[in-house]
């Protein structure tokens, strides 16, 4: 059966693309170096496929229908919000794995909204670009989109439960392939509000500490009020971290890099997740 062999959390910051000079050269080198290290680790883990857990930025799903969690079961294309150097294109999809997870979910209490020809935004396309493409292996992906940017937000507990469900579903997928999961999101950042540009290293380090200790109770203890106050509306994306932590069975991990980059409006944190045996 398939197995999850590694996990990562990383930002998907579009500002890196449209305002690269917003960061100092040292900050930029550190961040791009972290992405390169994660790509190297994905290659070393001999990953055959990846589950990229992203989130809509109110550009995929409109007021007509706001799904709490979505999974790709067929073709994937993106990003719909093209960026300099990151144009919209088909992304190699692992439809069979996505369909299997969705099917297991329907049988076990997770009624996935499915994207049979899913468009994704930069939250999937950036990690694909910077973490998967550099491996040179054309790794197929399953895209998962959590409601992190538009209310009603997916509760943190539900994001965690979803990660555990993903782990169980992958373990019953009839294949010997090796799967990595990527929780894609920024830590502190404010999108479009009056605090845009503020970052909070204290909050960022608290989150990274929780992630690398595999501390489920502390992760679920982060209330929306605290996240919005200390991390900003963009930090609601750490639901993707909770999902990735649970998918790797919260075995802890290590910080690869951290840098607060006000010029990129985000606390940029990168970590690798261990996988429980």
């Amino acid at each position: 059966m398939a197995q999850i062999v590694g996990g990562f959390v990383a930002p998907h910051n579009p500002v890196m693309y449209f305002n690269p000079k917003g960061a100092t050269q040292e900050q930029s080198d550190l961040c791009y170096g972290a992405y390169a290290e994660m790509a190297k680790r994905i290659a070393e883990l001999e990953a055959d496929s990846a589950i990229v857990i992203g989130c809509d930025h109110y550009i995929l799903f409109g007021t007509e229908c706001l799904p709490p969690y979505v999974i790709s079961t067929g073709e994937i294309e993106g990003p719909v919000d093209q960026l300099p150097g990151l144009k919209r294109k088909p992304l190699k999809s692992h439809g069979a794995l996505g369909e299997h997870i969705a099917k297991v979910g329907r049988e076990t209490g997770f009624d996935w909204t499915v994207g049979r020809a899913l468009n994704v935004d930069h939250s999937v396309a950036v990690p694909h670009h910077l973490m998967l493409e550099p491996t040179g292996k054309d790794i197929p992906i399953v895209a998962v989109m959590l409601a992190c940017g538009v209310d009603p937000y997916l509760p943190m507990k539900r994001a965690w439960d979803l990660g555990e469900h993903i782990a169980e579903a992958v373990a019953s997928f009839p294949s010997d392939e090796r799967v990595v999961v990527i929780g894609s999101g920024g830590i502190s950042h404010h999108v479009g509000d009056e605090r845009m540009g503020e970052v909070n290293p204290e909050f960022d380090k608290k989150v990274l500490d929780i992630v690398t200790r595999g501390d489920k109770a502390a992760m679920l203890g982060l209330t929306d009020e605290e996240i919005l106050r200390d991390g900003g509306n963009g930090a609601m994306e750490i639901r993707t971290y909770a999902c990735a932590m649970a998918a790797t069975r919260a075995a802890g991990g290590r910080v690869i890099a951290y840098e607060p980059v006000p010029g990129w409006v985000t606390g940029m944190g990168f970590a690798e997740l261990e996988v429980a045996a």
């Binding site: 109110y58 538009v150 209310d151 479009g192």
Partner: peptide, 21 residues
């Protein structure tokens, strides 16, 4: 109204980010 939308609405009109802030 979600500020992802207000920001995008402002920028799509060619208005400056500085004025938005």
């Amino acid at each position: 109204v979600n500020t992802m939308l207000t920001w995008g609405f402002w920028l799509q009109a060619g208005k400056s980010n500085g004025d938005y802030l």
